[in-house]
Write a protein that binds this DNA or RNA. Structure first.
Length: 678
DNA sequence: ACGGCTTAAACC
DNA sequence: TGGTTTAAG
């Protein structure tokens, strides 16, 4: 809710930092010879040169624009260097950009409250730092002012004077008679310049920034103005410049944490004749409420006055993770097994990212959501409402894969109209899937004091991820034509969709020789369909052979996995805990227990932990019961883990409020986390 | 029915 | 709530 006048609003310094054509810079850091050349980052090179997702400023000068195809870019700028986004599992892999973004955040977070707004943007609340500077070393006391700060653009200040402008900036910053706002802003300019230099030095990335202290609409102004002077420049919006800036601003350019660019903006123009934010000022709050409802009306009234009431949140990490892919037009998926294949890949990526999140940030997600888009082949018009579905998230690749697929099937049934459809009919004429995504949300911190057990559980789930790749032996009978279709030159997508057309799939059980198979993760129901699964690989016989080898002898699949393997060696019994639990509630039984409608039965199954799972805000459920941990098993655990386990086993605590399922005693470890959490 | 993929948030 | 919709980049 917008707050008209936040108490904290007095003379703050808010900055917005935006990396310049970030993906391009990341690639140029990797390939320094590209520096200074017109460069663009492109994904999926096969169709018309791929789609551009980032364009260097040199290339922009030649008229290359984001969302051109590679071919168009070449036409516009023949010398352009096109760099491809990395591909993993047949889809774009943005991880290098994500971690480059984290590098930047970790630098910027040092000097004030910092909010990660996107992969390449942050907001900073520099008020404290500016106040300290003003108190301890105000600009006018400095013998020299940072050159970079002197290059700032100050809104409302003429910049024509050529060489003199730096001097003007210096004067502005050092003005004795400035009000406190402007003084703080002057300090802010110096701090921001310093930060930008530090980012450049430590990451080699350049960025642009803007700062303001208008107590009004901080983020909006920051965002607005940092886009104003790019690349590698900084802008300042003094309080005195705000009114003018706002009043002439086209309504659709108004950026307030999303909103006015789209339908609402259009409606304001056509229905109320509002073209600029200034125009909006003429309308009373109630008038606006009549048109757009109470909330939106008030909100509009506020933002037209620059009031957003939003503070910079101190959040450095994303609130969710997702992995998705589209299958446009002719590539739309038409068989369950292909859908499953892709869900498996997406789930793998998601799981990997979740694992890193646990390791690096000690937090876990608790909801898994599946998202798809579809149309019916007859109804060309029915391209909308494939329902999303979610369920509690269980860690472990195979579990995520299983749950995602179950969610999909539940959604599909609903989409098709509750009933019908043999799942196995690999040939079917009805639906087409044009997009799939899996995401993990409701991420909570792991309470301190539980880190080693979390690592332990985490490693349990990462190992079989490799097992799922190779150990589960899927035999995919490729027809000759399909195999031929997979020449190295073909796009990964083309390859990956090959199995969809004409494959007969044989499901087999997991390789029982794999010492590390654990039924929790690789069980009958975890059989995965994984045709030529690594889409980047050409699916030759020898390779699929080597893949299953890789599965059985786990080594050299990366340090993380190796570590976990070593951890596993001494102590298989924790695995049994999981295994026993899962065996105790196999799918079939579970379904009979829950008397539920057809459409929900599958999603209940995806829910897996049948008992549970209202654990309040923590809302984690990993699906094993603490009371199933036998003392003898405990004894086998490392002392450290035992100690941690005991620390949450407080038998008398009960958290299971909620609508009592039959099994009221069910409590998962997650429940024990709750009292420790905060 | 080719601009792909991610994230966030409002709203119902 | 969960699910849908909108938006941005």
């Amino acid at each position: 809710m917008p707050v008209a006048r936040p108490e904290t609003s007095d003379a703050r310094v808010i900055a917005h930092v935006d990396m310049d054509c970030f993906y391009v810079q990341v690639e140029q850091r990797r390939q320094p010879e590209l520096r200074g050349l017109p460069t663009a980052v492109v994904q999926y090179n096969e169709w018309q040169g791929g789609g551009l997702i980032a364009v260097s400023y040199e290339a922009r000068k030649c008229g290359v624009k984001r969302s051109m195809r590679g071919d168009e870019a070449k036409a516009a700028c023949p010398e352009i260097q096109l760099v491809q986004v990395p591909v993993a599992r047949g889809k774009a892999d943005l991880n290098t950009y994500r971690s480059a973004g984290s590098e930047v955040v970790s630098i910027l977070a040092q000097s004030g409250r910092c909010e990660r707004a996107s992969i390449d943007e942050v907001y900073l609340d520099l008020t404290d730092a500016a106040e300290s500077m003003l108190a301890d070393a105000p600009p006018e006391s400095l013998e020299s002012i940072d050159e970079e700060a002197l290059k700032s653009h100050i809104l409302g200040m003429s910049r024509e004077d050529g060489d003199d402008f730096k001097e003007s900036v210096r004067e502005w910053i050092c003005r004795k008679d400035a009000d406190r706002r402007d003084k703080l802003l002057g300090c802010g300019m110096i701090i921001v310049a310093e930060l930008r230099k530090q980012v450049l030095k430590e990451t080699e990335f350049s960025c642009s920034a803007a700062s303001n202290n208008t107590e009004l609409n901080k983020q909006m102004l920051a965002k607005l103005s940092s886009g104003m002077n790019k690349p590698a420049q900084q802008t300042v919006v003094p309080y005195s410049a705000v009114q003018e800036l706002l009043s002439s601003l086209p309504i659709k350019k108004m950026y307030v944490r999303k909103q006015l660019g789209g339908k609402l903006g259009t409606s304001l123009q056509t229905d109320l004749g509002v073209d600029t934010v200034g125009d909006l000022l003429q309308f009373s709050e109630t008038k606006l409420q009549e048109h757009y409802g109470v909330n939106t009306g008030t909100w509009l009234w506020n933002i037209s006055r620059g009031i957003s009431g939003e503070e910079v949140q101190g959040r450095l990490l994303p609130k969710s993770h997702g992995s998705g892919k589209t299958f446009p037009g002719p590539r739309a998926l038409k068989s369950l097994s292909t859908v499953q294949h892709w869900l498996n890949s997406l789930s793998e990526e998601l799981s990997e990212r979740l694992s890193s999140d646990v390791e690096q940030n000690k937090r876990m997600a608790s909801t898994l959501t599946l998202h798809a888009s579809a149309f019916r082949s007859k109804d060309s018009d029915s391209h909308k409402k494939f329902p999303s579905k979610s369920c509690p998230l269980r860690y472990g690749v195979a579990k995520i894969q299983e749950d995602a697929f179950n969610l999909f099937q539940a959604a599909l049934r609903e989409y098709m109209g509750t009933f019908g459809m043999k799942p196995q009919g690999n040939k079917q004429e009805t639906w087409r899937i044009t997009g799939l995504s899996v995401s993990a949300s409701k991420i909570v911190d792991i309470p301190s004091g539980t880190s080693s057990i979390m690592r332990y559980f985490q490693s349990q789930s990462t190992v079989p991820s490799c097992a799922a790749d190779g150990c589960v032996q899927e035999h995919v009978a490729m027809t000759p034509s399909a195999s031929e279709g997979c020449s190295e030159q073909r796009s990964v997508e083309t390859q990956a969709t090959v199995p969809e057309e004409d494959t007969s799939v044989t499901y087999t059980l997991p390789n029982s020789e794999n010492q590390y198979k654990d039924n929790d993760l690789v069980s009958e129901k975890d059989v995965v369909f994984c045709p030529s699964n690594n889409a980047t690989d050409v699916p030759t016989q020898s390779q699929s052979q080597s893949q299953s080898n890789k599965g059985t002898q786990i080594k050299k699949t990366g340090r993380k996995i190796n570590n976990s393997k070593e951890q596993n060696l001494g102590m298989p019994s924790i695995v049994d805990i999981f295994k026993n639990y899962n065996n105790a509630t196999p799918q079939s039984k579970q379904e009979t227990q829950e008397d539920s409608t057809v459409s929900s039965s599958t999603s209940k199954r995806a829910n897996f932990s049948s008992s549970s799972s209202h654990c309040g805000e923590v809302n984690q459920d990993w699906g094993y019961k603490i009371d199933e941990i036998d003392q003898s098993v405990m004894d086998e655990l490392p002392v450290e883990i035992q100690r941690e386990l005991r620390s949450f086993i407080r038998p008398n605590k009960r958290f299971n409020t909620g609508k009592g399922k039959s099994d009221g005693s069910a409590s998962s470890i997650a429940h024990y986390f709750q009292p420790l959490n905060r």
